[in-house]
């Protein structure tokens, strides 16, 4: 009889892990709470650093998982997880019980809810948006303000909900800097007359080809970078957003009137992941993402036997890293099943 593995979450991590397992001849049940697979890929238009369409990655992942060895259960919640001697028993919201030899948790991340940084006025002022809102506009092919007009000056705030003790997130989300640079370029592509300003604390361009993208943004697209944390935003009678920031390199406070303010929301442990943590008795680490047994060689292992992690449910990662991490999870599961 074939081995059976349950994968929770059908985003990038879940899809890749499921695909790899089924290639190895293992039966996979892929459970997703949303109706659609692909996770955050569905909300993003183009990906950094090469700015290819996110659909291409999604197509690859879905083709990879479109086979008989993988049973997709979409639009389904998990109600119960029991880890016993015979394997892992998962009860779904439909009352169905699934028994598997191992479980991969790939619950991903949630974007930081930007209204929690009230001083930036998201959901209070008309022309404050998040990076996710902007992606939707890119997909539609039109960047517009609340009143339908095109913005001329756009400010991008880095580190919204990351590296911020005040919202309880001490960690760096890693992706927001490069997302900001990517989105700044895209804005300039769409609106050649516009001016874009990035407000950053540190530019963390540590991935492959990130620094090159940063240079391109400066050289080719004339994006302005100002080092300082935006402390607060206000709104004037013309619905313009007025921000307060210190230009720390010039050593002077800077006040600027913007048509549009875009907040680079960070990554947080997903609410779905927290639920699974509760059901399966998994530990959260200091940053509330799942705690892995070892940062160096155990980044897919949980403290519970037979349960493994894949992707951003353990830490912020980009897509490349997520896919590698998921493949590693599949390898871990296969060796676990062979030695069981």
């Amino acid at each position: 009889m074939n081995k059976h593995v349950i994968v929770i979450g059908a985003g990038v991590a879940g899809l890749e892990a499921a695909g790899q397992l089924s290639r190895a001849g293992i039966d996979v049940s892929l459970i997703e709470r949303e109706k659609m697979t692909g996770g955050h890929l569905n909300d993003w238009f183009k990906l950094f650093p090469d700015r290819r369409d996110s659909r291409e990655v999604k197509d690859y992942l879905e083709k990879f998982t479109n086979n008989d060895g993988i049973k997709l259960l979409a639009g389904i919640e998990i109600e119960k997880i029991i880890n016993g001697r015979g394997g892992v028993k998962v009860t779904t919201s439909e009352g169905k019980e699934l028994i598997a030899d191992a479980l991969i948790v790939a619950t991903g991340f949630d974007l930081f809810r930007s209204s929690r940084k009230e001083e930036y006025g998201y959901e209070i002022y008309d022309n404050v948006y998040t990076s996710a809102d902007l992606e939707k506009m890119f997909r539609k092919g039109k960047i517009s303000l609340h009143n339908g007009k095109s913005p001329e000056t756009i400010g991008i705030v880095h580190c919204v909900g990351s590296r911020d003790e005040k919202v309880g997130n001490l960690y760096c989300s890693k992706l927001c800097c490069v997302t900001a640079v990517k989105q700044a370029i895209e804005i300039r592509e769409h609106l050649p007359e516009s001016k874009v300003f990035c407000f950053y604390m540190d530019m963390r361009m540590g991935g492959a080809m990130y620094e090159e993208l940063y240079r391109e943004a400066q050289e080719k697209w004339g994006v302005n970078f100002i080092r300082g944390k935006v402390s607060e935003a206000g709104e004037d009678i013309n619905n313009k957003v007025i921000i307060k920031v210190e230009d720390t390199l010039a050593g002077r406070p800077l006040k600027m009137e913007l048509d549009m303010l875009v907040l680079m929301a960070g990554m947080e442990m997903s609410e779905g992941g927290r639920k699974i943590a509760g059901l399966a008795g998994l530990n959260a680490g200091e940053n509330r993402f799942f705690a892995v047994t070892d940062q160096h060689y155990g980044s897919n292992r949980s403290s519970v036997k037979g349960i493994f992690f894949a992707g951003t449910c353990t830490a912020p990662m980009n897509i490349t890293e997520t896919i590698s991490h998921s493949r590693a999870a599949a390898t871990e599961v296969i060796s676990y099943l062979n030695n069981k």
Partner: peptide
């Protein structure tokens, strides 16, 4: 209150 625009608005 300048850090809680919801209140002043």
């Amino acid at each position: 209150s300048h850090l809680t625009p919801g209140i002043k608005n």
